[in-house]
Simulated assay, not measured.
Amino acid sequence: MSLTEKFKYISPRENAGSMASNRFDFQKNWAICKLIELTNSGVDFLLAFEYHEDIIVLDSVNNPTKIDFYQIKTKDKGTYSLSNILTKKKLKKGDGGSILGKLYQNKLNFDSETKSLNIVSNNRFSIKSIKENRLVICCKELDDKEKLEIEENLKAELSIQWLHEFLDVIFLHNSELTIEHHNEITKDKLNKLIESLYHTDVKYNPSLAYRTIFDEVNRRNNIERKINNFEELIHFKSISKDDFDRMLKIVVSEPDKLKLAKNRLFDRLDNAGVSIPLRRKLSEAWKDVQIEYLSLNNDFFNQCVNSINKVIDNNIDELYGAVWENLDKLYVLLLQQKEIQNQKIYTEYFLKMVILKELYNEE
């Protein structure tokens, strides 16, 4: 059975744990840094979110044969010991799995396809036999006592027959990201990647580039639909090498077009004498609108844009009033569209800003 076929029959484990917003953002920033690392390496890849593990990386989007599994852990203070990752979590009804036990279950599900099992932490791992500070520790480097501790705990937890080569695929990572500054560190890494791939004098907005890619990662990470096959995993929960390359090209080239479109639209509003409060609300909404126009494969946003253009096309001959009068009229008509009525994502002024952009066909 191929790896892609296995995804149809092996369901991801339930993940009911909660995490503070900053911890989730740390994980998403780590994923962006991983995308940067993979891009710099030149290899093909497919990085998927919250599927069998926090992050998984497959070696191909077309015919994958190997997977790297990553479990991301954060804590404010202290270090992670072997005991921390081998102790089973206490639940209201019995014991849950240990950190390493849950991670190792992936090896049991995808034996020949597992390339590595990785625990990533913002703090270092305190391993007695490893004296120096290391960013990466392979468990085969541990001393015999520590190896035996891992063996005995995983044998008991998972009821498996142990092989010493199992340790060859288990890695402990001390991330360069910190809880306090993961946004800034990731933004810096992204800027360096863009400058290395394109001309050093390329004009782009670093903050907009970072926010656009972070929002795309956030959107794919947070999709909670059931994934039934590999094709759905690619479309809804993953970023491929080609996807990331397109994202980078968009954040370098498209913002100038959007800035020009914004300037033209607000010149039109100013010339029409739009009120200052309305102008400020629309200007604030534009910050989110431009992110959506820069996003890849945002099906719902594209549906909304299609609905807006349908309303405009059906009523174009009735738009005789001032800019804001036409805007209000189109907005009322848009609210009659079923997909708009049922959505709770986009605000009134977000939708009005999109209406303006589509109405005046600003590219």
Rank of each mutant, 00 (worst) to 15 (best):
F230Q: 02
K131E: 10
Y9A: 11
G96D: 14
S295F: 06
K155M: 08
D95R: 07
I10P: 11
D288V: 09
N218P: 11
A261Q: 03
E325W: 00
Q336A: 12
A31P: 06
G97S: 15
V323E: 14
E184I: 07
K257G: 04
H235S: 15
F49E: 08
V43I: 11
I137L: 01
E284A: 15
C304E: 10
E339Y: 01
T200M: 05
N106G: 12
N315S: 11
R280L: 14
K77H: 14
V136H: 07
E180M: 12
L258M: 05
L135K: 12
G97M: 13
S126G: 06
E113H: 12
I223H: 08
I276Q: 10
F45V: 04
L91A: 15
L333K: 09
I56Y: 02
C33M: 09
Y346F: 06
F7N: 02
D256S: 14
A322V: 01
Y9K: 10
I36C: 03
E149L: 00
L294G: 11
C138V: 05
C138G: 11
I312W: 06
Y198P: 14
E157H: 03
L330I: 05
S207F: 08
L334H: 02
L294S: 13
L142F: 00
K6G: 05
F110P: 12
F7Y: 10
E195Q: 15
N298V: 15
R124G: 07
N297M: 07
A285V: 05
E132V: 10
N228E: 09
L177Y: 11
L208M: 12
K93L: 15
V305C: 05
L282N: 05
V217A: 13
S11W: 04
E284G: 15
N205S: 14
D215I: 12
K115V: 06
F214Q: 04
L327W: 00
E165F: 01
G273H: 02
Y51H: 11
K262D: 05
D188L: 14
N271L: 14
Q27G: 11
A272H: 09
E180N: 13
L3F: 15
T114W: 01
L163F: 03
L58T: 01
